[in-house]
Write a protein that binds this DNA or RNA. Structure first.
Lengths: 274, 274
DNA sequence: TCCCATTATTCCGTTGAACGGAACAGCTGC
DNA sequence: GCAGCTGTTCCGTTCAACGGAATAATGGGA
């Protein structure tokens, strides 16, 4: 028992990683890549065989991963990767520019806020509710998603929203209005909470959306090909900085942030092994 | 300490699987899905966090998988899945029809024999060498691959073989001959070792291929869309059963086998979770 | 605002599983 | 046939894993 943390699970996972990275799957190489004595490697491999993740072929052929290893990462989606890489970048952004950021992903017929830099911002605007679902049409996050997602996806979502029981979703009943607003967003390159929502809300007298909101969200998409992986929204108070000025000074950094997230996500999910 | 195998690694892997399958990732659900007492679940989750596979968000938000889980199955390719599902089906086939089967996948500029039902066959023809690489042009396995793979892939492989130092690969120097033979195979629906190889070998006087081989391979592809995942070859002795008769009596079962492998592979790799 | 039900977290004594060095066995190639 | 290498098995030691129970935090409802 020499040095590093004697933790069987970490070692076993190291073995699995080693097998995923290795070329040949002989005991020697596995043990070496996992930095384990061979006797330990054998024991752990036996357990992995027992558990069904690894198959032992023969003495000479060594071991092989089984399809069961897929179950260990099935649930990890691209949207999780985006959020993961986005978090540190978002914190950095907020430390520099003060305003709070939120990132959201689409899930079914609504946007889910997955992270926010509330703790890093000196300006406490919104509380952070993890995994908070918000209607597509009520915030910059959702509007940005709809504006930049592929056409077929946009049609599908809006059609579904129109059939929804929720009052806010039913703003999508006039697809023409929605499409006009989304076209404006696409042309401009970013979504704003206030004006677009106000426009939609006015079509329905008793809307929950309040035209006099003090806080505005400015959102841009994080793309992957033609798909929108997530949208990032910058929240600022109109009493401090007007929308014009916000767009002038903050839009560029916000777009850079989105681009950085795209690049890092790509590296994280498509990168080779080793 | 109650019942089942007290093995930390198996438990930890259960936790990971549970997290991949779960909807919400609160301690309660994770522990329940993994059939663990909560205190154990916490301990294992801590280890997974420590090892970087899981992230703890907050008390209320629970846990989340990190992108690192992908490393646990990166190396598992479709070609591995094919071989895995093929093995029991091949054994069944050989028990029924006596002759030995081999399955091979393409890897770079050669075919790799990944499994053979040598143990199940009463007729000992070939030894089984796991992971044995064989040249593309020297066996039914490789010829079947080349015949049925997409056109762009065929061109690429043949071009590369033509540049190879190996004498057998260099049979691909006359692409026209090769293409003519492959066309024949495609039209017929299966590849044979003997005649095609003899034709190629004759173009090069001192070839390793022996026209008087006693054993013939009859190979069909296992497809996925337009890609060839693997090829399966039936090996029989010409002294016992002629090629005509083999095709008449064994081709149909062989094709059924290939189809079954295709179906099962699809189920294994595309199936939903839970 | 307080209280209660629910859920997460921490503690701790016990125990058996994990550990690796070393001896042994099996295969390969010279 | 022998030498060298690689995988396998054995075994005494030790400490990490274990889970029940006490404790703390949370959130919802009145």
């Amino acid at each position: 028992m020499s040095e590093a943390t004697r933790a069987p699970v970490a070692r076993a996972l190291n073995v699995l990683e080693a097998m995923n990275a290795a070329h040949s799957l002989h005991l020697g190489e596995i043990a070496e890549r996992a930095s384990l004595p061979k006797s330990s490697a054998v024991r752990l491999l036996d357990q992995l065989v027992e558990a069904g993740y690894v198959e032992k072929l023969s003495r000479s052929a060594g071991y092989r991963l089984t399809s069961r290893v897929q179950r260990l990462s099935w649930g990890f989606r691209l949207s999780d990767a985006v959020v993961e890489v986005a978090e540190p970048l978002m914190r950095e952004f907020t430390k520099k520019h003060r305003w709070t950021l939120f990132i959201g992903v689409a899930e079914g017929d609504r946007m889910i806020v997955r992270y926010g830099t509330v703790a890093e911002s000196p300006v406490a605007i919104d509380p952070l509710i993890y995994e908070a679902p918000t209607p597509f049409l009520l915030g910059a996050l959702g509007l940005a998603y709809l504006a930049f997602c592929p056409d077929w996806e946009r049609r599908a979502i809006i059609a579904r929203l129109g059939r929804s029981r929720s009052a806010t979703d039913r703003l999508a009943r006039n697809p023409d209005d929605v499409m006009r607003i989304l076209n404006g967003i696409r042309k401009r390159g970013y979504a704003l909470t206030s004006d677009e929502v106000r426009q939609l809300a006015n079509t329905s007298p008793k809307s929950a959306a309040d035209g006099r909101r003090r806080v505005t969200g400015m959102a841009v998409p994080v793309m992957r090909g033609d798909r929108v992986l997530a949208t990032v929204s910058l929240r600022f108070m109109r009493s401090v900085i007007g929308e014009q000025e916000a767009a002038k000074t903050l839009l560029e950094p916000l777009r850079d942030l989105a681009r950085d997230i795209e690049i890092e996500t790509h590296r994280l999910t498509d990168a080779g092994r080793e």
